[in-house]
Amino acid sequence: MISQLAVQGAQMLVVLLLAPLLIGFVRKVKARLVRRQGPSVIQPYRDLVRLMRKEVVLADNASWLFRVTPYLIFAATWVAAALVPTFATGLEFSWTADLIVIVALLGSARFFQALAGMDVGTSFGGIGASREVMIASLAEPAMLLIVFSLALVAGATQLSTVAAFMGSPEVGLRVSLGMSLIALVMVAIAENARIPVDNPATHLELTMVHEAMILEYSGRHLAMIELATFLKLLLYMSLIACVFLPWGLYGASAGPKALAVGAAAYLCKLAVLAIVLAVFETAVAKMRVFRVPDFLGAALMLALLGTLLLFVSRSL
């Protein structure tokens, strides 16, 4: 029991500490790909510390909701990220929430973020919030349909069970899983506001979605929101890793040696996914906002097709 709790606690700390590093790594790889030196991989930590030390500049008419939201977003994202298996499955509290709950927790974070964007009453907040909910209104159903596909293959929505099943030899090659993987990657790109859906580095107001919503934030509030954004990227990468790259994933009670192997495997998977993301982002251009529905509509259709195939035959 105690050791199980320790593993769960370790997982919560690991995701929190690793998330900025992951972002730093992605940024470094992107910089190297365009032959820039780029900032050090630990720059995101420095940014966070710097933000914490700065004063908060609050708009005159910002309400209590604006000040509470960063903590809510951070808490919801952190809880969701801590519930996705990273280096071990079957954690102590994994039965608290299944995959549907994790998706919904991210939905809660987004709900409050969009509200905070509208709190000050500037056009930037409004444009960001309204585009964010448009993207979410397509990405969320796609994500739920992906969950359906996974649940139908593995017979469970419990992420630990799904991961264990995906690691077992009875999975085989399935069309529906391929479709789910593609759809999941597309949704992950949209949810994390990466290129081609949104540009995390843009500061041209009319092209941004996520950045427009948080434009009014500063200081410690911004630090919380940034950290939540980092955590979200880590969450989606962990999710893809544990479902589609389930190698080296052991149960939480497997002993320290197995856990060490799991941790090493997890780091390798993250590095691979980060490099893939960086290469992809460097290679494609951002699309217009109103092309995004087509992009996500394709993800939605792929996920629906995958689910339909599984309804037709459990072996597809």
Binding site: K54, E55, V57, A59, D60, G121, E216
Partner: peptide
């Protein structure tokens, strides 16, 4: 530290 200002 916290300062109130006009929105950007």
């Amino acid at each position: 530290a916290l300062r109130r200002g006009i929105a950007w």
